[in-house]
Write a protein that binds this DNA or RNA. Structure first.
Lengths: 339, 339
DNA sequence: TTGAAAGCGCTAACAC
DNA sequence: GTGTTAGCGCTTTCAA
């Protein structure tokens, strides 16, 4: 059972190659009679067009790439990425696009991976989930004229499309909530300060405190890596400062922090209140249920795909910026329900 | 800056197309003189071959697909998949392959996704992380002569290549350990009984008990879904049976079970001991650290890729079966350290 | 509406 | 070692 080509299908149906192509790509343009004749042959033979040939001829692969550049183990150390991938994959399915996944696990790998991801022909566009404020990828994307949408604010906003959430407002919301509850020593476990998210979420923390006329106590600000271990380590460091509340810049770090608090013999939220950021599925399930800032991770992933597809279809394309709001989700870890 | 073709590079270098092609694909077959001349042009112009054209002509795309068929949210409800993807991606990078990711989130999606994944031309082969014992995919793979490697034992072992771990021995190890520690009422939270892993891990539980002459108490056997919620729910059901130890067929279910135990005011391992399966990164970090069966998830992912690539290069290819051993990792949740 | 024919950009025999 | 020449299987003008 060798592989059929368009040519052979055409012969079997007694029509030309072009007609078969039309039946596949634009059935309405073929007369019902021909259409059904061709369709019959396709059904009977199980013919499937060769995607490489189609891509070459049409210059459209219906495939997009997702690049997640991450030198640390953090790609999957934080389930955030799993949810993001799920959203992206879902949108791809919806629009009949194929998703190519480019992860890299070390700096060394990055060159070879970029090489593949940036080479022409196979990919219609790229979604980039990079969050470093210095990103070597962007100049290359521009030079090679590769369509891309960032997830998270990229370094150069003027030339690059992205979808993001309002991180500053989000963390402002979180910290204001803690202030409202009357906490006095509010610490934060921030994200890396070489990433836009990390910077913004810390900025929201500062903004909320300042708005209430509070001074920023630098000893209450510790940098984490968005992962559980980072949260754990940061919290152990914070314990000596005796905070009564902590805003962690990701749920995953909040989980690590809670463990550190427990191991110190303290209780959440009675001794130390915690608020996270993300509202991952686990936030609602864990013990105690986590008060957190909900951001639409899955939706953002889907939006990134849809934005990219739109740009694909309507060149030329000014960069698009989509920023979604966040929402405070109150559960028990902040003490709001018990105080 | 329009896109360059081989042809144009050849003209610029004053050689034939074939020579440029050789420089790219097999530099050793070109004289140093010509090679450097061509290479210079490539470097200066930033030329990149068009992958679609290359795929069409060579019938090799250097791309493999990963199919994770999962009707539930379980794809990313269990970090197991994240680790697996990481391994697969890593091996792809190592061998300069591109990874296409096919997830589906509902039964409806499956048809369209399969259509893409099975269509010709774009993919050299497939890795399938399906674990249902009835798998509609296999006949199609065979009919279309698509090279595939399963992760986990597939329904029809005689026609399909796979990599797996010895699940029966693994859970046998886990339950034997609990027996050795003297537990009397050992329950299990099993995986779904329509999956090979689910069945095998329950079989290991039964085997260990029988070997010690114990009867199987059906009220101590509850089916979960490998996810946290499933473990939680199953454990709540088990609590009324007052087990003194539980073997959970995945770490993720073990985490859910621990939460249920805590909420009931009981302690792990003092009141109920727990053993998991997988040894996910979180198993060592959580509280209490989880005794579990380590399986080489990442390594299995890499092996799947490497097996597939080998098969790609050496047709015809009898199905290959690789089964790796597991290992008992003793931490605190089983009580071994305190009893 | 349908068909003929010209590519899409590359690889791979084959000849030199 | 290098160039010539056919394709790979499809889409897409352009005529009919």
């Amino acid at each position: 059972m060798k592989k059929l080509t368009l040519e052979e299908v055409a012969k079997l149906a007694g029509v030309s190659r072009a007609t078969v192509s039309r039946v596949i790509n634009n059935p309405a343009s073929v007369s019902p009679d021909f259409r059904s004749r061709v369709q019959k042959v396709i059904d009977e033979t199980g013919y499937r067009p060769n995607l490489a040939a189609r891509t070459l001829a049409s210059r459209r692969s219906q495939t997009i790439g997702l690049i997640i550049p991450s030198v640390t183990q953090s790609v999957f150390g934080d389930p955030y990425f799993a949810v993001l991938i799920e959203g992206i994959s879902r949108a791809c399915n919806l629009h009949d696009f194929t998703l190519a996944l480019f992860l890299f696990h070390s700096e060394d790998e990055s060159h070879r991976v970029y090489e593949r991801a940036l080479s022409t022909g196979l990919l219609d566009g790229l979604i980039v989930a990079a969050d470093k404020i210095i990103d070597p990828l962007i100049p290359q994307l521009i030079a090679r004229q590769i369509l891309a949408v960032y997830v998270g604010r990229p370094p150069d906003v003027s030339q690059t499309s992205y979808v993001d959430v309002d991180n500053i407002s989000g963390s402002f919301l979180a910290v204001s909530h803690l202030l409202r509850l009357g906490y006095q020593r509010i610490a934060t476990i921030s994200g890396p300060q070489d990433s836009a998210v990390g910077i913004d979420r810390r900025a929201g923390y500062v903004k909320a405190l300042k708005q209430r006329g509070r001074e920023i106590d630098e000893s209450l600000v510790v940098e984490g890596d968005f992962c559980r271990d980072g949260g754990y380590t940061a919290m152990r460091q914070l314990l000596s400062q005796e905070p009564d509340a902590v805003f962690a810049a990701s749920d995953t770090m909040a989980f690590g922090a809670i463990q550190a608090i427990r191991e110190a013999g303290l209780k959440v939220p009675d001794d130390i209140a915690i608020v996270g950021f993300d509202d991952l599925p686990l936030a609602a399930q864990c013990d105690p249920p986590l008060t957190t800032i909900r951001q639409p991770v899955r939706r953002n992933g889907m939006l990134a795909v849809e934005t990219l597809i739109e740009m694909l279809e309507t060149a030329p394309h000014p960069p698009r910026h989509i920023v979604l709001p966040t929402e405070l989700i109150i559960r028990s870890s902040c003490g709001a329900l018990t105080r």
